[in-house]
């Protein structure tokens, strides 16, 4: 029945869906990285650990405070964003004038501390987070079974990504942000509080990772190293896409998720490495990245 040119459509669509879901998380994380990079010119190595933190906070909130998934979806990004603001204000700003490699090392240190802390507290085995009731069950499509929660992940991340893109590219606030990316000194001269903007931007970029963490909690097991492995893949994606454009980060993230899904179906042995191989090819052909501007 579900065969076409010798391809098992059931399996293919299943893997495509998994790819699309992974791609949603890639997009959310690389979007956060790109926004932070735009203003601060640093890469937040702690982005993966913060994604992990988001998932754990959602888990703990449900377990000990009875805070539901829906509330966590709002509260956790706020809490995580606040932590990001404190991190920018007290750790990153003091060394803002040093070589940017130092701030990279600093965020790496933060990532180690967070991951070490959660490994120590909860061990390295994963916890499971129940799928919210509104999304239990799924829809039967002609070629596949689509669990409701998975559909929700794709829709919700798309909404958040497109919303962020719209805010940055189309609103006045976004115009400030883009101007700050181009020339922060001139912005300051026009009377705009650039340091405050930098802090809030960092908070927002980090909050996106927290949001992704809450979204991920019901589908992946909540474990201390869930973020670090993901982050390295996201780095490869950032190199593939280049950090020149917000839209580019979103498209590359989703696209690479799909590429990974397809590889899982056609040649599963390479599914872990395919994104890195794509990075190698992009480095050979267009070193600045698909959407990169710099030489």
């Amino acid at each position: 029945m579900a065969e076409f040119l010798g391809i098992n459509l059931f399996g293919l669509f299943g893997q495509l869906l998994v790819g699309l879901i992974n791609g949603s998380f890639y997009a959310l994380l690389s979007l956060g990285l790109a926004i932070i990079f735009g203003l601060l010119k640093i890469i937040n190595f702690a982005q993966g650990a913060i994604y992990m933190l988001g998932a754990f906070l959602a888990y703990l909130a449900l377990q000990y405070l009875g805070i539901s998934y829906w509330a966590a979806l709002i509260v956790v990004p706020l809490v995580v964003g606040l932590l990001g603001i404190l991190m920018e204000r007290f750790l990153i700003r003091p060394i803002a004038n040093e070589d940017h490699l130092y701030s990279l090392l600093l965020t790496f240190g933060v990532a180690l501390v967070l991951q070490g802390l959660f490994t120590h507290l909860f061990g390295s085995s994963g916890m499971s987070y129940p799928i919210p009731e509104a999304f239990s069950g799924g829809i039967k499509l002609p070629f596949m079974y689509l669990p409701n929660y998975r559909a929700w992940i794709v829709v919700a991340s798309l909404v958040v990504c497109v919303g962020t893109w719209w805010m940055i590219e189309k609103t006045k606030l976004g115009a400030y942000l883009r101007a700050g990316t181009e020339n922060p000194a001139l912005m300051q001269a026009f009377g705009i509080n650039v340091p405050l903007m930098v802090t809030l931007t960092f908070g927002f970029g980090v909050a996106l990772a927290g949001f992704a963490g809450v979204m991920a909690a019901p589908v992946y097991s909540v474990s201390p190293d869930m973020g670090s492995n993901l982050l390295i893949v996201v780095f490869a994606i950032v190199v593939i896409g280049g950090m020149g454009s917000i839209g580019g980060a979103i498209i590359t993230g989703l696209g690479m998720g799909i590429v990974e899904g397809l590889t899982k179906y056609f040649y599963p042995e390479a599914s872990n490495t395919v994104i890195f191989l794509v990075m190698v090819i992009v480095l050979l052909i267009k070193p600045a990245g698909l959407f990169g501007k710099e030489a």
């Binding site: 010119k41 890469i43 940017h100 390295i232 490495t273 890195f276 990075m279 070193p287």
Partner: peptide
């Protein structure tokens, strides 16, 4: 491959390339 990029990108490229080989050694 990695000297094609600089600074922060260099760090990310080397990390990603290393991870590629990590999976090779794993499998």
């Amino acid at each position: 491959l990695s000297v094609k990029r600089e600074g922060i990108y260099f760090a990310m490229v080397t990390l990603a390339l290393a991870q590629l080989m990590f999976f090779v050694f794993l499998q």
